[in-house]
Design a protein around this nucleic acid. Structure first.
Lengths: 227, 227
DNA sequence: AAGTGGTCTAGACCACGCG
DNA sequence: GCGTGGTCTAGACCACTTA
């Protein structure tokens, strides 16, 4: 009886409505005895299921089948090179612009720095087999990552450079839909006003802002995963 | 030394570049000895870190700091009622249409049923404090879920009903961006051509298709998570 | 106060996959 | 072949939460 076996058996009972949504299921000790394995094995199995949202576990209260399973899905955050190469195409990266700027007020608020702080602004285009894949508009906090000032970001993409040189402790990410403006349409070779997926990401290292980036994907891009 | 302590110490060393990307880190046994805890504790910690993509683990090859960390993020799949109520607004649901139809060829291909199979097609609008929140276009496979034929889906939303009556074993989900057509714009109270987030989901119970749904969110909707 | 999940330990065996 | 991670076990103590 491996923990995977226990997990599958528990899932089977949930799906077969042996344990209906809202029901309290047996304790770890009881299941271990019934299935003939150690309590730790049952614990591992139930912990994995709870992580998918199908079970609610609370000390003393026990384990219940979730009333309304909050489906959770793990998405791989796009790392351009991987994503493009995984599809069998050649990845390339072109720097469009590079300038040291003072943080506009809105950005300062968003990342928690003071307005006017020095930042490096980078524009870049990601390509798959030469075709536009995504357009990137990035701000790097020079107060946190001063070495970025001396990096041209031509051969190496900002994303890959930052992964190696600027660790972060936490961040936020959001996907949305936006209409392509004229410049974006030109870069991504799509119609002006075309609906595009956008990705906004902000990362911090402790209390210090590291980078803020907005990526606009080519028309037709979708974020996919299995359930 | 709890597994969280071990995890934090390992993360600290990765961030401090004690172990640089690509480096082989000590074995579980070595770390357990160094940190003064059981190997199982180290295993749990490393397993958790590996799940976030920061470590690569392979038997015999050992554990390495990921060269290009594939960031993974867990998103809660929107369950309308929860999402709306979590924001402090009142949830409501309005059925727009209901009809038994034969599966069009494109849909049959997508979900793996035969063209012409009987399906229940439902249109619905989800509301938050009376304002349009999302527009739903759903097809339910009557061959797999015959009970759906007798359900009006007026009081209960299709999503909530299916969660209780039609278990699924696996599925696919995709987020994209689309432009609002005239009908959608009217339903969601936005401009025609406005960029909207779309969610497409297909689920199966074993080899049998259960349901296919496309949801279009109100303009400005974004899918968010913390890193 | 007591029951339940959360975790640690020490030891063991196994399976995979480099060399 | 053999080193490394993957997992199981049996027992123990702890922490949280609810009754």
């Amino acid at each position: 009886m491996t923990w995977q076996d226990v997990r599958d058996e528990v899932l089977r009972r949930i799906r077969a409505r042996v344990w209906a949504p809202g029901d309290l299921i047996p304790t770890e000790a009881a299941l271990a005895a019934e299935l003939g394995c150690a309590r730790a094995t049952v614990n591992r199995a139930l912990r994995e299921i709870a992580a998918t949202g199908l079970l609610d576990r609370r000390r003393k209260a026990g384990t219940r089948v979730a009333l309304r399973p909050v489906a959770k899905a793990v998405f791989d955050i796009p790392v351009m090179r991987e994503e493009v190469e995984a599809s069998g195409r050649a990845y390339a990266h072109r720097r469009l612009s590079r300038a040291v700027r003072r943080a506009p007020a809105a950005m300062a608020r968003a990342i928690g720095t003071h307005a006017g702080a020095e930042m490096l602004r980078l524009g870049a285009l990601h390509l798959a087999d030469g075709a536009p894949y995504a357009l990137e508009d990035r701000w790097i906090a020079l107060g946190t990552v001063p070495e970025a000032r001396d990096e041209p970001f031509e051969a190496v993409s900002a994303n890959e450079w930052l992964l190696r040189h600027a660790p972060y402790t936490h961040g936020e990410i959001a996907f949305g839909a936006v209409a392509a403006d004229a410049g974006t349409a030109r870069s991504l070779d799509c119609a002006e006003g075309a609906p595009l997926m956008s990705l906004d990401r902000v990362t911090w290292n402790g209390a210090r802002p590291v980078t803020q980036v907005r990526i606009l994907f080519h028309a037709g891009y979708a974020l996919r995963t299995a359930l």
